[in-house]
């Protein structure tokens, strides 16, 4: 089994971080797609799979490029469908079961605000392929933020029931925010060479956007210091929660049953 141990070589760092990002997008996209046919209203039944589709498109581009950098004949399908659980390095937040609509929307807002700023910075990547996909994904993330922010405000400033559910979602998700900004030798190497920005440099911008939205939603985030020093960790090392196995069982079903199956 290939472990997600930290490398020293620059190309390894590039591969590892592209796969982390791709895994975030694939796993969160998969979770969102679970809402298809179950959303509270028809418009949301269109919206969530549409966002999921954007995330999958971004994941495909990231996996493909990672496969080229790795240079071991693994294409996007091999990376997306034919790895073991411990080899997936997504944020733990992304694999959490959807919970209710408030939980799904708040998680998406946290993630999309982060990615919007991350891709904006990524547009000046030293790698032209990364720069190109960042400029495309940035616009898409911006649209996701807009959609999720409207819902978070509507729920937070809505009925007692919707506000209570959002508050509960915030409590459940807060421990996972820390991981968004986590730094290690992989992100440092890539930050130093201008390949991808250090996630920790997104904090101020992320926080400013979230605060603006939370003011309108009548919500309050714990202080930044707490977010950075406390919280769950392990996703980037392939240490997952129990729900990841169930998610992969469904996600990988076809490729595990009929290996190398093509459309």
């Amino acid at each position: 089994m290939q472990s997600a141990a930290l490398p020293t070589a620059e190309s390894d760092a590039r591969f590892i971080q592209l796969v982390r990002l791709a895994d975030d997008h694939l796993i969160l996209g998969h979770r969102l797609s679970e809402w298809c046919g179950h959303a509270p209203m028809l418009e949301e039944d269109l919206a969530m799979p549409n966002i999921a589709l954007d995330l999958l498109g971004q994941a495909r581009a990231l996996y493909s490029h990672a496969g080229i950098i790795e240079n071991k004949d693994r294409d996007e399908d091999a990376l997306a469908y034919r790895r073991l659980e411990r080899e997936y390095t997504n944020l733990l937040m992304c694999e959490r079961p959807n919970g209710d609509f408030a939980h799904t929307m708040l998680r998406q807002l946290f993630f999309s605000v982060f990615m919007k700023h991350y891709w904006l910075s990524g547009e000046s990547s030293s790698d032209p392929v990364v720069a190109a996909l960042a400029s495309k994904a940035q616009k898409e993330s911006d649209y996701h933020v807009r959609h999720c922010a409207q819902w978070v405000i509507r729920l937070g400033d809505g009925t007692d029931e919707s506000a209570a559910r959002l508050a509960k979602a915030l409590q459940a998700l807060t421990p996972y925010l820390h991981e968004l900004f986590e730094s290690d030798s992989v992100t440092q190497t890539n930050g130093d060479v201008g390949f991808l920005p250090e996630p920790s440099t997104m904090q101020t911008r992320w926080r400013a956007d979230i605060d603006t939205i939370f003011d309108l939603a009548k919500l309050c985030l714990p202080s930044v210091e707490n977010l950075l020093t406390q919280g769950k960790s392990g996703g980037r090392q392939g240490l997952h929660s129990e729900s990841m196995g169930f998610l992969l069982a469904e996600l990988q079903f076809l490729q595990r049953t009929y290996p190398n199956m093509q459309w």
Partner: peptide
């Protein structure tokens, strides 16, 4: 605006 997302990725309703 009825919905931010429409029948295809490029359209709103």
């Amino acid at each position: 605006k009825v919905s931010e997302f429409g029948s295809t990725a490029c359209k709103a309703h």
